[in-house]
Amino acid sequence: MTRTLILGGTAWLGRAIAEQLVVEGEDVTCLARGESGAAPSGVMFVRSDRRAPGAYDSVTGDDWDEIIELASEPDLVTGALDALADNAKHWTLVSSVSVYASNTESGADEDAALVEPTDLTNYAHAKVAAERATSAALGDRLLIARPGLIAGPGDTSDRFSYWVSRLALASQEPVLVPEVHDRAVQFIDIRDLTDWLIAAGRRGLTGIYNAVGSERELAMLLRDAAQIAGHTGELISAEDDWLTAHNVNYWAGPRSLPLWLPRRDFAFAQRSRSRFLAAGGTERNLKQTLADVLADERTRGLDRGRRSGLTRDEEIILLGEISG
């Protein structure tokens, strides 16, 4: 039995890792404020504000086979390193493909240039700073995983899940989509990412890996999502200039079309995954992910408020302006 400390563990990814470790019979401790949700059943939960004095006192006396860091804020990352680096046999930092300086080189790998971390309030800059601090403290005990878009049941960002749920909600009615020609999407199912992180930790895998899925055509994803959702209506596409002129946002957030990227950032969804595959990375079938996401979305409510996407009312108004 291995002993794992997850710095977090009540939000989506941390919780998924903790739950799977418990299923596999491992000894799991989660240290977090607990504001993102209840601790998973079967873990030892340590409620702690990581910015408070003595935040790690209850876990510094232990030796850990694995520590998993999910935070991006540099003060949280460095505070954990100061308290725990000497107690960890292996350390995993979950970073992001957002750390790369350019999104214009298709197939770029883990050696591509990173942004310079000059603004630590910026997510990408903070992740680079976290990588550098962790590398300096851990040396050859460190695994850095750089996922891109994470998808799957329970997603709270609503980016991937928007499309299959919107198509199901619309049923026979039209749905607004961006122009999909020459547009790619790249995601990893949270269950595939969780399985790989756990296996990599057990093996003591070190180095930097783009933990990403296959590059897929956005058109293919929308086609498969429509099939899974049973959508029989028309997909009405709009050009980028029209969408931006009508205050529709890229990628994520309110009043957006999720997964739609500016053409200047085309390679964000075309990162190399060869190193990840060589290290045992796997990928489940796209239609399986879509079906599982739709089942989860039906439980949560297809017409619920979302962090990303258009409301159905906003979409209908935009569709009316196109046809008008």
Rank of each mutant, 00 (worst) to 15 (best):
D241A: 11
D265Q: 13
A52K: 01
V115N: 00
G233L: 01
I188A: 03
L76Y: 10
A83P: 00
M44P: 00
G148P: 03
G148C: 03
G25N: 08
H181V: 15
W196S: 00
I317C: 07
A226G: 14
F266T: 09
D313C: 09
A200R: 07
W251H: 11
R183A: 08
G148Y: 00
G230N: 03
T4Q: 11
R132L: 15
T10Y: 11
R141M: 08
G54M: 06
R271M: 10
V180D: 02
V185F: 00
N103P: 01
T104N: 15
A16S: 10
V43D: 04
A136R: 15
R306K: 07
W251N: 14
D158Y: 10
H181A: 14
A219Y: 11
S95G: 08
G154K: 07
S72H: 09
P53K: 09
G280T: 05
T134G: 09
R264A: 15
A88E: 02
E215S: 09
L143F: 11
A16F: 07
G34T: 02
T78F: 00
A291K: 08
I188G: 04
L222C: 04
D109V: 10
G152K: 00
V77E: 05
V128Q: 01
Y209P: 07
L197D: 01
W163I: 09
G9M: 04
D158T: 12
R191L: 03
P254A: 15
R271W: 05
Y209W: 12
Q270L: 12
W64T: 11
V43Q: 02
G148E: 01
A278W: 11
E66L: 15
L13V: 11
L81K: 04
A129E: 05
E179C: 12
A85H: 07
S36L: 10
L261P: 01
E215N: 05
A267L: 02
T2C: 12
A145P: 09
A129D: 02
D296W: 13
L142V: 02
N87P: 10
S102H: 09
F160W: 06
D49H: 11
G25W: 10
R15K: 13
P74G: 13
D111E: 07
A113D: 15
S308I: 10
A267W: 02
L13M: 08
S308W: 03
L286R: 10
C30L: 08
R298N: 06
E315K: 02
G201I: 05
Y100F: 13
L114M: 15
V22Y: 03
D265I: 07
L205A: 05
E105Q: 12
A279G: 05
S256D: 00
D158M: 06
T282H: 12
D65I: 07
A133Q: 02
N103F: 13
V115Y: 00
A145C: 14
L259D: 02
R15Y: 03
E26R: 14
A291T: 11
D224I: 14
L21N: 09
A252C: 13
R307H: 08
L13S: 05
L70E: 07
G107H: 12
L149E: 01
A133T: 03
A137I: 06
T232M: 02
V180L: 09
A108E: 05
T121D: 10
D82W: 05
S165R: 10
E173N: 13
V185R: 00
R33M: 08
L76F: 04
L31F: 05
E69Y: 05
G14F: 04
D140H: 10
